[in-house]
Design a protein around this nucleic acid. Structure first.
Lengths: 182, 182
DNA sequence: ACTTGGGACTAGACCGGTCGGTCTAGTCCC
DNA sequence: GGGACTAGACCGACCGGTCTAGTCCCAAGT
Protein backbone atom coordinates (compact mmCIF):
# COMPACT_ATOMS: atom_id res chain seq x y z
CA UNK A 1 0.00 0.00 0.00
CA UNK A 2 1.31 3.37 -1.05
CA UNK A 3 -0.15 5.02 2.05
CA UNK A 4 2.32 3.22 4.24
CA UNK A 5 5.18 4.51 2.13
CA UNK A 6 3.83 8.04 2.08
CA UNK A 7 2.90 8.46 5.73
CA UNK A 8 5.05 5.88 7.44
CA UNK A 9 3.87 3.33 9.95
CA UNK A 10 3.05 5.59 12.87
CA UNK A 11 1.95 8.39 10.61
CA UNK A 12 -0.75 6.24 9.06
CA UNK A 13 -3.74 6.09 11.38
CA UNK A 14 -6.32 3.34 11.20
CA UNK A 15 -9.03 5.83 10.37
CA UNK A 16 -7.22 7.25 7.35
CA UNK A 17 -6.39 3.75 6.25
CA UNK A 18 -9.99 2.59 6.48
CA UNK A 19 -11.30 5.62 4.66
CA UNK A 20 -8.84 5.15 1.82
CA UNK A 21 -9.75 1.49 1.53
CA UNK A 22 -13.45 2.33 1.91
CA UNK A 23 -13.71 -0.50 4.39
CA UNK A 24 -15.15 -0.54 7.90
CA UNK A 25 -13.09 -1.45 10.89
CA UNK A 26 -14.70 -4.84 11.26
CA UNK A 27 -13.38 -5.97 7.90
CA UNK A 28 -9.90 -4.74 8.66
CA UNK A 29 -9.62 -6.59 11.94
CA UNK A 30 -11.19 -9.64 10.39
CA UNK A 31 -8.39 -9.86 7.83
CA UNK A 32 -5.52 -8.64 9.98
CA UNK A 33 -4.68 -9.43 13.56
CA UNK A 34 -3.59 -5.85 14.20
CA UNK A 35 -1.81 -2.95 12.58
CA UNK A 36 1.58 -4.64 12.79
CA UNK A 37 0.22 -7.73 11.06
CA UNK A 38 -1.16 -5.49 8.34
CA UNK A 39 2.20 -3.83 7.72
CA UNK A 40 3.92 -7.18 7.69
CA UNK A 41 1.51 -8.43 5.04
CA UNK A 42 2.06 -5.29 3.00
CA UNK A 43 5.76 -6.08 3.13
CA UNK A 44 5.05 -9.62 1.95
CA UNK A 45 3.09 -8.37 -1.01
CA UNK A 46 5.74 -5.80 -1.79
CA UNK A 47 8.36 -8.53 -1.83
CA UNK A 48 6.27 -10.63 -4.18
CA UNK A 49 6.37 -7.68 -6.59
CA UNK A 50 10.10 -7.34 -6.14
CA UNK A 51 10.70 -11.02 -6.83
CA UNK A 52 8.53 -10.82 -9.91
CA UNK A 53 10.68 -7.94 -11.09
CA UNK A 54 13.82 -9.92 -10.39
CA UNK A 55 12.42 -12.86 -12.34
CA UNK A 56 11.72 -10.63 -15.27
CA UNK A 57 14.99 -8.71 -15.29
CA UNK A 58 17.50 -11.32 -14.21
CA UNK A 59 15.84 -14.19 -16.04
CA UNK A 60 16.30 -12.64 -19.46
CA UNK A 61 19.28 -14.80 -20.37
CA UNK A 62 19.64 -13.31 -23.83
CA UNK A 63 21.28 -10.31 -22.22
CA UNK A 64 24.68 -10.36 -20.52
CA UNK A 65 24.37 -10.80 -16.73
CA UNK A 66 25.63 -7.36 -15.76
CA UNK A 67 23.11 -5.74 -18.04
CA UNK A 68 20.34 -7.82 -16.43
CA UNK A 69 21.27 -6.58 -12.99
CA UNK A 70 21.28 -3.00 -14.15
CA UNK A 71 17.97 -3.53 -15.86
CA UNK A 72 16.35 -4.60 -12.61
CA UNK A 73 17.33 -1.35 -10.96
CA UNK A 74 16.34 0.69 -13.99
CA UNK A 75 12.92 -0.94 -13.81
CA UNK A 76 12.70 -0.17 -10.13
CA UNK A 77 13.61 3.42 -10.87
CA UNK A 78 10.78 3.51 -13.36
CA UNK A 79 8.32 2.31 -10.72
CA UNK A 80 9.55 4.98 -8.31
CA UNK A 81 8.77 7.53 -10.97
CA UNK A 82 5.20 6.27 -11.24
CA UNK A 83 4.77 6.66 -7.49
CA UNK A 84 6.09 10.22 -7.59
CA UNK A 85 9.55 9.46 -6.20
CA UNK A 86 8.61 8.32 -2.74
CA UNK A 87 11.62 6.06 -2.50
CA UNK A 88 11.49 2.50 -1.27
CA UNK A 89 8.96 1.04 1.16
CA UNK A 90 11.58 -1.15 2.81
CA UNK A 91 13.87 1.79 3.32
CA UNK A 92 11.10 3.87 4.83
CA UNK A 93 9.77 1.24 7.19
CA UNK A 94 13.27 0.06 8.00
CA UNK A 95 14.41 3.48 9.13
CA UNK A 96 11.26 4.18 11.08
CA UNK A 97 10.89 0.88 12.89
CA UNK A 98 14.35 -0.66 13.22
CA UNK A 99 14.92 1.19 16.47
CA UNK A 100 11.83 -0.07 18.27
CA UNK A 101 10.76 -3.34 16.68
CA UNK A 102 12.98 -6.37 16.40
CA UNK A 103 10.29 -8.02 14.30
CA UNK A 104 10.43 -5.37 11.60
CA UNK A 105 14.18 -4.96 11.87
CA UNK A 106 14.84 -8.61 11.18
CA UNK A 107 12.17 -8.95 8.55
CA UNK A 108 13.32 -5.98 6.52
CA UNK A 109 16.95 -6.98 6.75
CA UNK A 110 16.01 -10.41 5.42
CA UNK A 111 14.22 -8.74 2.51
CA UNK A 112 17.33 -6.80 1.54
CA UNK A 113 19.43 -9.93 1.95
CA UNK A 114 17.08 -11.82 -0.36
CA UNK A 115 17.34 -9.20 -3.09
CA UNK A 116 21.10 -9.10 -2.69
CA UNK A 117 21.32 -12.89 -2.86
CA UNK A 118 19.50 -13.05 -6.18
CA UNK A 119 21.61 -10.21 -7.49
CA UNK A 120 24.74 -12.01 -6.32
CA UNK A 121 23.85 -15.06 -8.39
CA UNK A 122 23.72 -12.93 -11.49
CA UNK A 123 26.94 -11.19 -10.55
CA UNK A 124 28.61 -14.58 -10.17
CA UNK A 125 27.56 -15.31 -13.74
CA UNK A 126 29.13 -12.05 -14.79
CA UNK A 127 32.30 -12.97 -12.97
CA UNK A 128 32.50 -16.31 -14.71
CA UNK A 129 31.86 -14.63 -18.03
CA UNK A 130 34.75 -12.29 -17.34
CA UNK A 131 32.57 -9.16 -17.31
CA UNK A 132 33.82 -8.28 -13.85
CA UNK A 133 37.23 -9.11 -12.38
CA UNK A 134 37.77 -12.75 -11.50
CA UNK A 135 38.68 -11.90 -7.93
CA UNK A 136 35.42 -10.04 -7.28
CA UNK A 137 33.22 -11.18 -4.42
CA UNK A 138 29.69 -11.27 -5.88
CA UNK A 139 27.94 -11.48 -2.51
CA UNK A 140 29.75 -8.44 -1.24
CA UNK A 141 29.23 -6.57 -4.47
CA UNK A 142 25.52 -7.37 -4.46
CA UNK A 143 24.98 -6.33 -0.86
CA UNK A 144 26.83 -3.13 -1.56
CA UNK A 145 24.68 -2.41 -4.57
CA UNK A 146 21.45 -2.89 -2.65
CA UNK A 147 22.68 -0.75 0.23
CA UNK A 148 23.80 2.11 -1.98
CA UNK A 149 20.58 1.87 -3.92
CA UNK A 150 18.62 2.47 -0.74
CA UNK A 151 20.65 5.54 0.04
CA UNK A 152 20.15 6.89 -3.44
CA UNK A 153 16.42 6.13 -3.11
CA UNK A 154 16.21 8.21 0.05
CA UNK A 155 17.96 11.11 -1.64
CA UNK A 156 15.74 10.71 -4.67
CA UNK A 157 12.76 10.99 -2.36
CA UNK A 158 14.08 14.10 -0.68
CA UNK A 159 14.74 15.76 -3.99
CA UNK A 160 11.77 14.38 -5.87
CA UNK A 161 14.11 13.39 -8.66
CA UNK A 162 15.66 10.27 -10.19
CA UNK A 163 19.09 11.90 -10.51
CA UNK A 164 20.66 10.31 -7.40
CA UNK A 165 19.55 6.88 -8.56
CA UNK A 166 21.03 7.32 -12.01
CA UNK A 167 24.28 8.73 -10.68
CA UNK A 168 24.63 5.85 -8.29
CA UNK A 169 24.04 3.18 -10.94
CA UNK A 170 26.42 4.87 -13.38
CA UNK A 171 29.16 4.94 -10.82
CA UNK A 172 28.59 1.42 -9.63
CA UNK A 173 28.53 -0.32 -12.98
CA UNK A 174 31.43 1.66 -14.34
CA UNK A 175 33.49 0.77 -11.27
CA UNK A 176 32.37 -2.81 -10.96
CA UNK A 177 33.41 -3.66 -14.49
CA UNK A 178 36.91 -2.35 -13.96
CA UNK A 179 37.91 -3.11 -10.41
CA UNK A 180 37.66 -5.83 -7.85
CA UNK A 181 36.05 -5.75 -4.40
CA UNK A 182 37.54 -8.95 -3.08
CA UNK B 1 18.54 13.68 20.96
CA UNK B 2 19.03 9.97 20.60
CA UNK B 3 15.38 9.27 21.40
CA UNK B 4 14.34 10.81 18.13
CA UNK B 5 16.69 8.53 16.26
CA UNK B 6 15.59 5.47 18.17
CA UNK B 7 11.84 5.93 18.09
CA UNK B 8 11.34 8.19 15.13
CA UNK B 9 9.29 11.36 15.09
CA UNK B 10 5.81 9.93 15.43
CA UNK B 11 7.02 7.10 17.59
CA UNK B 12 8.34 9.49 20.20
CA UNK B 13 5.48 10.75 22.35
CA UNK B 14 5.68 13.95 24.35
CA UNK B 15 5.21 12.02 27.56
CA UNK B 16 8.16 9.70 26.96
CA UNK B 17 10.23 12.67 25.87
CA UNK B 18 9.44 14.66 28.99
CA UNK B 19 10.12 11.73 31.29
CA UNK B 20 13.49 11.09 29.69
CA UNK B 21 14.42 14.74 29.99
CA UNK B 22 12.99 14.87 33.51
CA UNK B 23 11.25 18.06 32.53
CA UNK B 24 7.61 19.07 32.92
CA UNK B 25 5.50 20.02 29.96
CA UNK B 26 5.59 23.70 30.77
CA UNK B 27 9.34 23.84 30.28
CA UNK B 28 9.15 22.02 26.99
CA UNK B 29 6.57 24.32 25.50
CA UNK B 30 8.40 27.30 26.88
CA UNK B 31 11.54 26.39 24.92
CA UNK B 32 9.90 24.98 21.81
CA UNK B 33 6.89 26.20 19.87
CA UNK B 34 5.71 22.65 19.29
CA UNK B 35 6.96 19.15 18.58
CA UNK B 36 7.96 20.03 15.04
CA UNK B 37 10.01 22.98 16.26
CA UNK B 38 11.71 20.66 18.73
CA UNK B 39 12.69 18.19 16.02
CA UNK B 40 13.92 21.00 13.81
CA UNK B 41 16.13 22.27 16.61
CA UNK B 42 17.45 18.77 17.22
CA UNK B 43 18.39 18.70 13.55
CA UNK B 44 20.17 22.03 13.93
CA UNK B 45 22.20 20.76 16.82
CA UNK B 46 22.95 17.55 14.99
CA UNK B 47 24.25 19.55 12.04
CA UNK B 48 26.47 21.62 14.30
CA UNK B 49 28.08 18.36 15.38
CA UNK B 50 28.46 17.24 11.81
CA UNK B 51 30.10 20.49 10.79
CA UNK B 52 32.45 20.25 13.74
CA UNK B 53 33.39 16.79 12.54
CA UNK B 54 33.93 18.09 9.03
CA UNK B 55 36.13 20.88 10.37
CA UNK B 56 38.21 18.38 12.26
CA UNK B 57 38.55 15.78 9.52
CA UNK B 58 38.74 17.90 6.38
CA UNK B 59 40.73 20.70 7.94
CA UNK B 60 43.70 18.50 8.76
CA UNK B 61 45.77 19.70 5.81
CA UNK B 62 48.77 17.58 6.71
CA UNK B 63 46.94 14.60 5.23
CA UNK B 64 46.17 14.15 1.55
CA UNK B 65 42.63 15.34 0.70
CA UNK B 66 41.19 11.92 -0.15
CA UNK B 67 42.37 10.55 3.17
CA UNK B 68 40.68 13.47 4.95
CA UNK B 69 37.36 12.67 3.33
CA UNK B 70 37.62 9.04 4.29
CA UNK B 71 38.58 10.03 7.79
CA UNK B 72 35.37 12.02 8.21
CA UNK B 73 33.30 8.98 7.40
CA UNK B 74 35.44 6.71 9.56
CA UNK B 75 34.84 9.10 12.43
CA UNK B 76 31.14 9.06 11.75
CA UNK B 77 31.22 5.29 11.75
CA UNK B 78 32.88 5.42 15.14
CA UNK B 79 30.09 7.62 16.49
CA UNK B 80 27.48 5.21 15.13
CA UNK B 81 29.20 2.47 17.07
CA UNK B 82 28.93 4.47 20.29
CA UNK B 83 25.18 4.86 19.70
CA UNK B 84 24.76 1.14 19.11
CA UNK B 85 24.44 1.30 15.34
CA UNK B 86 21.21 3.22 15.06
CA UNK B 87 22.24 4.73 11.74
CA UNK B 88 21.87 8.38 10.88
CA UNK B 89 19.33 10.80 12.33
CA UNK B 90 18.91 12.57 9.00
CA UNK B 91 18.28 9.32 7.22
CA UNK B 92 15.72 8.25 9.79
CA UNK B 93 13.79 11.50 9.90
CA UNK B 94 14.12 11.95 6.16
CA UNK B 95 12.53 8.62 5.39
CA UNK B 96 9.79 9.03 7.94
CA UNK B 97 8.77 12.59 7.19
CA UNK B 98 9.64 13.32 3.57
CA UNK B 99 6.28 11.99 2.45
CA UNK B 100 4.14 14.25 4.63
CA UNK B 101 6.16 17.34 5.50
CA UNK B 102 7.65 19.67 2.96
CA UNK B 103 9.39 21.50 5.79
CA UNK B 104 11.34 18.45 6.88
CA UNK B 105 11.88 17.21 3.35
CA UNK B 106 13.55 20.44 2.26
CA UNK B 107 15.47 20.92 5.45
CA UNK B 108 16.95 17.45 5.47
CA UNK B 109 17.82 17.60 1.80
CA UNK B 110 19.65 20.84 2.47
CA UNK B 111 21.59 19.15 5.25
CA UNK B 112 22.79 16.42 2.92
CA UNK B 113 23.61 18.99 0.28
CA UNK B 114 25.70 20.92 2.80
CA UNK B 115 27.71 17.88 3.78
CA UNK B 116 28.20 16.97 0.14
CA UNK B 117 29.30 20.50 -0.68
CA UNK B 118 32.03 20.50 1.92
CA UNK B 119 33.11 17.07 0.81
CA UNK B 120 33.18 18.27 -2.79
CA UNK B 121 35.62 21.02 -1.93
CA UNK B 122 38.02 18.45 -0.55
CA UNK B 123 37.48 16.21 -3.55
CA UNK B 124 38.32 19.12 -5.83
CA UNK B 125 41.60 19.44 -3.96
CA UNK B 126 42.19 15.75 -4.57
CA UNK B 127 41.45 16.23 -8.24
CA UNK B 128 43.91 19.07 -8.54
CA UNK B 129 46.50 17.02 -6.71
CA UNK B 130 45.99 14.21 -9.21
CA UNK B 131 44.71 11.76 -6.60
CA UNK B 132 41.53 11.23 -8.57
CA UNK B 133 41.13 11.47 -12.36
CA UNK B 134 41.29 15.00 -13.77
CA UNK B 135 37.93 14.62 -15.48
CA UNK B 136 36.12 13.71 -12.25
CA UNK B 137 33.17 15.83 -11.16
CA UNK B 138 33.75 16.49 -7.45
CA UNK B 139 30.19 17.69 -6.79
CA UNK B 140 28.71 14.58 -8.31
CA UNK B 141 31.20 12.35 -6.58
CA UNK B 142 30.51 13.97 -3.21
CA UNK B 143 26.74 13.75 -3.52
CA UNK B 144 27.08 10.13 -4.50
CA UNK B 145 29.24 9.41 -1.51
CA UNK B 146 26.80 10.97 0.92
CA UNK B 147 23.86 9.14 -0.66
CA UNK B 148 25.56 5.76 -0.61
CA UNK B 149 26.68 6.38 2.93
CA UNK B 150 23.08 6.86 4.00
CA UNK B 151 22.09 3.58 2.42
CA UNK B 152 24.95 1.78 4.13
CA UNK B 153 23.93 3.44 7.40
CA UNK B 154 20.42 2.06 7.08
CA UNK B 155 21.74 -1.42 6.44
CA UNK B 156 24.17 -1.04 9.29
CA UNK B 157 21.22 -0.21 11.51
CA UNK B 158 19.22 -3.20 10.34
CA UNK B 159 22.11 -5.54 10.95
CA UNK B 160 23.51 -3.86 14.04
CA UNK B 161 26.91 -3.95 12.42
CA UNK B 162 29.47 -1.61 10.83
CA UNK B 163 30.19 -4.04 7.97
CA UNK B 164 28.00 -2.32 5.34
CA UNK B 165 29.63 1.02 6.11
CA UNK B 166 33.13 -0.37 5.76
CA UNK B 167 32.31 -2.25 2.57
CA UNK B 168 30.83 0.88 1.05
CA UNK B 169 33.80 3.08 1.88
CA UNK B 170 36.27 0.48 0.62
CA UNK B 171 34.47 0.22 -2.68
CA UNK B 172 34.03 3.94 -3.10
CA UNK B 173 37.60 5.01 -2.42
CA UNK B 174 39.09 2.19 -4.43
CA UNK B 175 36.88 3.12 -7.38
CA UNK B 176 37.18 6.87 -7.04
CA UNK B 177 40.96 6.79 -7.22
CA UNK B 178 40.94 4.83 -10.45
CA UNK B 179 38.02 5.98 -12.55
CA UNK B 180 36.16 9.10 -13.50
CA UNK B 181 32.52 10.03 -12.93
CA UNK B 182 32.42 12.97 -15.26
C1' DA C 1 20.42 48.23 51.41
C1' DC C 2 15.94 46.79 51.07
C1' DT C 3 11.83 46.40 48.52
C1' DT C 4 9.40 45.19 44.71
C1' DG C 5 8.00 44.31 39.98
C1' DG C 6 8.39 41.48 36.11
C1' DG C 7 10.41 38.30 32.80
C1' DA C 8 12.28 33.54 32.50
C1' DC C 9 11.24 29.40 33.64
C1' DT C 10 9.09 25.32 36.34
C1' DA C 11 5.30 22.55 37.29
C1' DG C 12 1.56 19.63 36.19
C1' DA C 13 -3.59 19.57 35.85
C1' DC C 14 -6.32 19.64 32.15
C1' DC C 15 -8.27 19.65 27.22
C1' DG C 16 -10.41 17.80 22.90
C1' DG C 17 -9.15 14.69 19.53
C1' DT C 18 -7.43 10.58 17.74
C1' DC C 19 -5.18 6.43 18.42
C1' DG C 20 -5.30 1.13 18.00
C1' DG C 21 -8.45 -2.23 19.12
C1' DT C 22 -13.03 -4.70 20.71
C1' DC C 23 -17.75 -5.83 20.45
C1' DT C 24 -22.29 -6.74 18.95
C1' DA C 25 -25.53 -6.83 15.30
C1' DG C 26 -26.50 -7.79 10.85
C1' DT C 27 -25.80 -9.63 5.93
C1' DC C 28 -24.54 -12.86 2.59
C1' DC C 29 -23.89 -17.27 0.78
C1' DC C 30 -23.24 -22.19 0.85
C1' DG D 1 -28.33 -22.66 10.15
C1' DG D 2 -23.68 -21.54 10.45
C1' DG D 3 -19.17 -19.72 9.00
C1' DA D 4 -17.19 -15.66 6.42
C1' DC D 5 -17.47 -11.24 6.26
C1' DT D 6 -19.52 -6.29 6.70
C1' DA D 7 -20.66 -2.54 9.44
C1' DG D 8 -19.82 0.95 12.70
C1' DA D 9 -20.71 2.24 17.63
C1' DC D 10 -17.90 2.17 21.28
C1' DC D 11 -13.72 1.80 24.49
C1' DG D 12 -9.76 3.31 27.42
C1' DA D 13 -5.32 5.17 26.58
C1' DC D 14 -2.53 8.43 25.01
C1' DC D 15 -1.63 12.05 21.74
C1' DG D 16 0.06 17.05 21.09
C1' DG D 17 -0.94 21.24 23.10
C1' DT D 18 -2.94 24.95 26.52
C1' DC D 19 -3.52 27.11 30.84
C1' DT D 20 -2.97 28.78 35.39
C1' DA D 21 -0.25 28.95 39.43
C1' DG D 22 3.94 29.29 41.45
C1' DT D 23 9.20 29.85 41.86
C1' DC D 24 13.41 32.10 40.96
C1' DC D 25 16.35 35.82 40.12
C1' DC D 26 17.85 40.21 38.94
C1' DA D 27 17.30 45.16 37.96
C1' DA D 28 15.14 49.53 39.05
C1' DG D 29 13.22 52.67 42.64
C1' DT D 30 13.54 54.81 46.96
Amino acid sequence: MALLLEHGYHGLGTQALLEAARAPKGSFYHHFADKEDFALQVIDEFMRHVHAGLDQALGDTRRPPLERVRRFFEMTKESYKKEGYLGCLMGGLGQELAGTSEVFRRRIDRCFAAIAERTAECLEEARQAGDIPADSDPRRMASLLVDCWEGAALRSRLRGSPAPLTAMLDFYFRSAAGRSTA
